[in-house]
Design a protein around this nucleic acid. Sequence first.
DNA 1: GTCTATAATTAGATAGAC
DNA 2: GTCTATCTAATTATAGAC
Lengths: 231, 231
Amino acid sequence: MVADGPQLIRRPQPRGLETRRDLLEAALCEFASVGFEAASTRAIATRAGVRQGQLTYQFPTKDLLWRATVDHLFERFDAEVAAALELRNTPIGDDPVATFEVGIRALVRAVAKLPELNRVMVHEATEDSQRLRWIVDTHVRQRFDQMSELWQQLGACGATHIEAEPVLMYYCLLGAASLMYVNAPEARLLMGGRPTSAAAMDARVDAHADVLIAMVLGPKHLRGAVRGESS
Amino acid sequence: MVADGPQLIRRPQPRGLETRRDLLEAALCEFASVGFEAASTRAIATRAGVRQGQLTYQFPTKDLLWRATVDHLFERFDAEVAAALELRNTPIGDDPVATFEVGIRALVRAVAKLPELNRVMVHEATEDSQRLRWIVDTHVRQRFDQMSELWQQLGACGATHIEAEPVLMYYCLLGAASLMYVNAPEARLLMGGRPTSAAAMDARVDAHADVLIAMVLGPKHLRGAVRGESS
DNA sequence: GTCTATAATTAGATAGAC
DNA sequence: GTCTATCTAATTATAGAC
């Protein structure tokens, strides 16, 4: 999705691809933690276990590294969503209510497992820039349009008592779904540093999705799965 | 709330206080836009119309400038909340439902008028650090506890069909209330750069609060004020 | 494909003139 | 209280050896 890599005269060699992948994973962490400008290519290279010169060979400029990282992040995010969809016996069809419910569950699961994506988004979206325009045009707008259409279908079939224009609902749902994971270090401090096993984490994610669905579809849609706090 | 300023041997002189205020306003913008590490003290001084040496006289280190900025930000935020509360004929008392409703309206109004606070929070909360611990201990925890108690009262009196532990609800409500304003540059791109007059902005903020209240208190609490889209 | 060495900028902090 | 000049360290990007 973005011009990448070495000079591309011949197909890349396996060890180059591997360091490339390592660099992308390292860049993902750094960019998500502190944003584009504060992230240092040296720190990224070190985290990936290579030298700085190696990074600039794979990604000639910091900007190209960032774009490749964002592409990689959205790919992983889509994979998380797909995995979450398969986990359920996805009754997706032309029923907007079922689509919404399954979609919200998959969304919450994905943002919880990959908070780095929303962190990068938030670091970039606080100020207008070329990078923000690129990420909106390349990745965000299509997802926003998709969600808008679903929201309008939901309103048309009378499934919700909430009346709001799509852009408002987009940010309400995304914010409610993601802030706890974006601000996970803060949340951990507020909760007093409980250990949070993987199972407890999963239960919390399910409860989180239940809350969002109950907020939008109302009490009549409660499926008895709304837990407060469990192990 | 934080040790500040020059050597404090004598009371500060008026022109010093003025540049101090200018520096805090400038720092607020820079820290909110790009975060602590990417913000440059030179850029802050330039924006405030003074030289860099002047900044280090008022705030010896970047860290002290940041803390003073955050204190200032929370003061301004509380002022916005207070102004929003006075705007309504605040029926706050011991009725949790009324308190919640008025509080949500004031919250949405305040985050919309001062998105810089939530931007700073999000820049800091994506990674554990001394700054994060300081901001949580100094400003966040007391507000979190206050909101948790209100949420438990709301559940106890059966006013909501949502069942969730306080920390989950804290991030759901705060995320739903703030993301649109935190990511305002992105939202403007998604909406196609509509002009958004002050009146339209106000209407949108009211509609936003209506949505949050309807989400939590359910259809029975709709007050006929839920607008979709208006001028 | 990987590495070292280095150029060119820029950062925060300090010292001292006025 | 304000400003200029400067120090030290860290940044991205480049050139070239292997």
